[in-house]
């Protein structure tokens, strides 16, 4: 039987190719093709995820395969939601490789059937998963802007000519990185606490064994918390804040990987 995720992958890879070409040639048509391809992949994936949820009655983020792919989906969803505000076309040049990386990483991991735990069937799990995945999605898009800020800053400090890529200015990259971080942080925090509240109310404390997922979750939360504080108070220089966002995104990857040992 054909794995339907291949269809979504086909469109995501096409979108990435168009996005990379857009970076080189900056033709509006290439951007439109990127959006159309990415949109087609997104629709296919949404249908796939919804069907999987319907059949198993478990939100499609209970193993590494699913979590990687749901993260790719969330990042793309955020781009589509935010585009009317950011109007940033060049972001697809950075975003589509990230989406493909997450999606392909998911495909490379076997989609092992789950040993159903009662928790998976509660609304708590769905709330926990979607808040967490969207929180991480916000961090990843914030990370892209932070990376753009670091690139621009590096280029300007070393007195290079402006980049060939029409990347956003330092100010714009900083602004969006901050906004996305500050929007994602409360969502992520709620995602973390929804799980804790469930554990306290219904869980079994004797069986609680914190591992990589929990450790990385807390570390990412702390690092991004410091970055958010830096942005809110303007007490930390934007470049350092951007590095903190990069570090926070790296810990977010560990959160995803941590599900293996969960």
């Amino acid at each position: 039987m054909i794995d339907h995720s291949v269809y979504a992958l086909f469109f995501y890879v096409s979108a990435m190719a168009f996005a990379l070409l857009y970076g080189g040639f900056r033709q509006k048509t290439l951007f439109i093709l990127t959006v159309i391809s990415a949109g087609a992949g997104f629709v296919i994936q949404t249908v796939m995820e919804a069907r999987a949820w319907f059949h198993t009655e478990i939100p499609p983020a209970a193993n590494l395969h699913e979590l990687f792919q749901l993260t790719a989906w969330a990042v793309l969803a955020l781009y589509f939601i935010l585009y009317p505000m950011t109007r940033s076309r060049i972001l697809v040049f950075f975003l589509m490789p990230l989406v493909n990386l997450a999606y392909m990483a998911g495909m490379m991991v076997p989609n092992q059937p789950l040993e159903p735990k009662p928790f998976y069937f509660t609304p708590w799990f769905a709330i926990h998963i979607f808040l967490l995945v969207f929180g991480i999605g916000f961090f990843f898009v914030s990370f892209l802007y932070a990376a753009i800020f670091i690139m621009q800053d590096h280029s300007l400090r070393h007195r290079h000519a402006p980049s060939h890529l029409p990347i956003p200015s330092l100010e714009e990259a900083e602004r969006w990185s901050a906004r996305l971080l500050l929007a994602g942080y409360p969502i992520y925090t709620l995602g973390m606490f929804s799980s804790i509240i469930y554990g306290v109310l219904f869980g079994n404390k004797e069986h609680y064994r914190p591992g990589l997922l929990e450790g990385a979750s807390v570390l990412a939360w702390l690092v991004l918390g410091v970055a958010s504080y830096g942005w809110l108070t303007a007490k930390v220089h934007p470049r350092r804040r951007s590095w903190l966002v990069v570090a926070g995104a790296a810990f977010s990857v560990l959160i995803i990987l941590g599900i293996i040992w969960h």
Binding site: Q152, S155, P162, S169, E171, R175
Partner: peptide, 18 residues
């Protein structure tokens, strides 16, 4: 790409400020 000093300065400013 800028080819004069004044335009180079202007262009760089556009890379810094939105």
């Amino acid at each position: 790409r800028p080819v004069t000093i004044s335009y180079a300065a202007f262009n760089l400013a556009s890379s810094i400020f939105a």
